[in-house]
Every structure is written in C-alpha cells, then in structure tokens.
Design a protein around this nucleic acid. Sequence first.
DNA 1: AATATTCATCAGGTGTACCTGACAAAATAG
DNA 2: CTATTTTGTCAGGTACACCTGATGAATATT
Lengths: 174, 174
Amino acid sequence: MSDLIKQEKTAGKLVKLGMLQHVSEEVSKKHPDYRMLFQGQGKILLALTEEDDLPQKELAKRLDMTAQSTAEFVRKLEKKGLVSRVKSVSDKRIIIVSLTEAGRMETKKSIQVIPEYLKDLSDVELDQLGNILDKVNDRIYEEIKSADPTLHNKYHQMVMAYLLTKFDPDDHKF
Amino acid sequence: MSDLIKQEKTAGKLVKLGMLQHVSEEVSKKHPDYRMLFQGQGKILLALTEEDDLPQKELAKRLDMTAQSTAEFVRKLEKKGLVSRVKSVSDKRIIIVSLTEAGRMETKKSIQVIPEYLKDLSDVELDQLGNILDKVNDRIYEEIKSADPTLHNKYHQMVMAYLLTKFDPDDHKF
DNA sequence: AATATTCATCAGGTGTACCTGACAAAATAG
DNA sequence: CTATTTTGTCAGGTACACCTGATGAATATT
C-alpha cells in the first residue's frame, strides 16, 4: 500500500473518529459537544479558564468579538450560573467577569469525557498515539502559522496559549 | 507514568487536535468545517452521498427531521446549486432530491483536506495510528450501542452505515 | 364519487452566534 | 471644569438550525 493511500485511509479514520464522537455525544446527551467550546459562550468560558476575573472588554479583545456580543454571552452565562459579573470598584464602568465553581467544572467536563475512548489502549499504544498526535499537532501548528504568520487573530493566539499551558507544559514552541 | 495519567495526557492531545483543526480551518477559510457535515444542509448532502435521488420525505425520515426543516435545507442547497429538486412522474406529490456534480464534489472536499495533517508521519506511524484509531473507534461504537442498543435514531444509523461503506469496506460489524 | 391519507409548502416561532449604530455613565486629559 | 475617550447597554439585524400549525394538492381507500 502506497504512502498516499495509507494517508487517505488514516485520514478517513480520523474523520470517522470525529463523526463517532459527534454521534456519541448526541446519543448520550451529556454536553452540547466539546467543540462548542470554541464558539459564543464556550469561548468565554475557555478564556476565563486561561485567566479568570477579566474585564468584559478584555474578554472581547482576546476573543476578537464586539463588546456587544461579549456582553450578550456573558449575560447568558450568568443566567446559567457559570460566571459572575461584578462592577469594579476602582473603575465603575468596567465589569469583571469571573468563573463560578459551576463554570469551572463545566470546562473541565468537556475534557474529562474523552479518556473513556482510550481505555482499550495499551500502554504502548498510548505512547504511540501520543507521539503521533504530537507530530500531527505540530504540523497543524505550522500550517496555521504559514497561513497567518503573525497570528493576528487574538482568539487564535489565545487558543494556542491555552493548548500549550494545558497540554504541553514543557513545550515552549509558542 | 501510570496508565490513567497517560490516558489523560493523550486525551488532552486529542482535544488539542480538535482545537487545532478548528483554528486551522478558521485561519485558512477553506471550508466551513467538516463538522458542518452533521447538521442542517450538511446532513442532507451526507445522506445523498450514501444514497442519491431520494424523495424529500425519505430524507426527513432518515435524518430524523421534520419535513419542513428538510424542505428548507433542500431549498437552500438548491439555491447553492448543490442539489436538484425534481417532481416525481409516478407520484406528483413527491419531490426527488439529487446531488448535482457540484454537490458531489462538496462532500468529497470535506474529507480530502485532512490528509495534509498526516504528511509528516512515517509509514510505520501511519500503521500505528490506523490500528489505534480502529480500536478507539470500535470503543466509541460500543459506547453508542450501549447507550442506544437498537440505534433508534435513523440519522445515527445512517452515519454508521456511511462510515462503514466509506472507510471500512471489509469490516461488517454493522 | 366522497373521504381519508400522504407529501410538500406557507407562515410564524425559538435559540444561538454574531454584527452595526446610538447612547449614557464614568474616567481621563486639556 | 469642560471635552474627549473608554466601557458598557439598548435596540435592532442577519444567518443558520431547528420546530409547530394550517393548508393545498395529489393519491389511496371505501
């Protein structure tokens, strides 16, 4: 089997993984899907996980959103009890958004579900997969950088930083 | 390193993969993201890829959607030139939805992008990853089945079938 | 032929992720 | 102390994925 065909077959399996994860999440109505972490309210939770107690305006800047959208999502999250909005004392215009305990747990949940999928893997396989994912992830990093060398998008910058501190504490490529 | 920690680390890398794919897709505004294949208009394209020239009603049934939603998406796809709507001759109530050439290419695109990520992998690594993904995917299959033993959701059934014929032509677990 | 069923459409609605424009309160600069 | 900038809110808008209810047209049943 040529490399190219093998690549395609493997790519197919990755797509399959994505689809299966999707169906699995739908079947077991757990959470709305960890991909939701990248949009709207999820984004905000993610940003606060990286750094808590941020002014609403700062959130908007980091997430490349308008202040209005940000305000909307923050309000929705507040209604769900996932964040708190407190007026700053030093500057009464500004609102400090913080994760509540529930909010903190919410972000954790989205990551904790996945290990289930890995329980059938041996130690060796986990090592192999880990190494391979590192390679693949590095590759995607590069693709992103070549598409946007200076990473203008603050949100993307943030995701990168988040990924680093969260999953590769020793690796300082970024 | 214990198995559990290793599992978690690997899970993290999988999440990272998901995030990077997302950012990558956003940066290089290629396609709206292959996840879109699971919702709305994407669903319909997917169903038609599995079996073309379906009555609108049949689409609705397979996708677990109301006839109205289905009609809406089909219309949108028609406007984009991805499907055609033709009144059946034998039964003039029913509308047969078919993929156009453009529509067929559209579904292919969402899968063809991924191999890029795999170009840095050696032959050995591709084999390893393939085997591991098989295991992981099987595991998720099982989880889905245990959550919904008879797979009542037609759409899920369809995704499964699609995955099979597309990526595991020899494997007949489903 | 009259009735009931089927398929699709129209109209209207909800929720989520966004956006622009207008504007007020608070802080800072001149 | 007035003028400007900053932060946030209100109002209103678009697009997408859905949904329910009502209705018309074609087919099937009696």
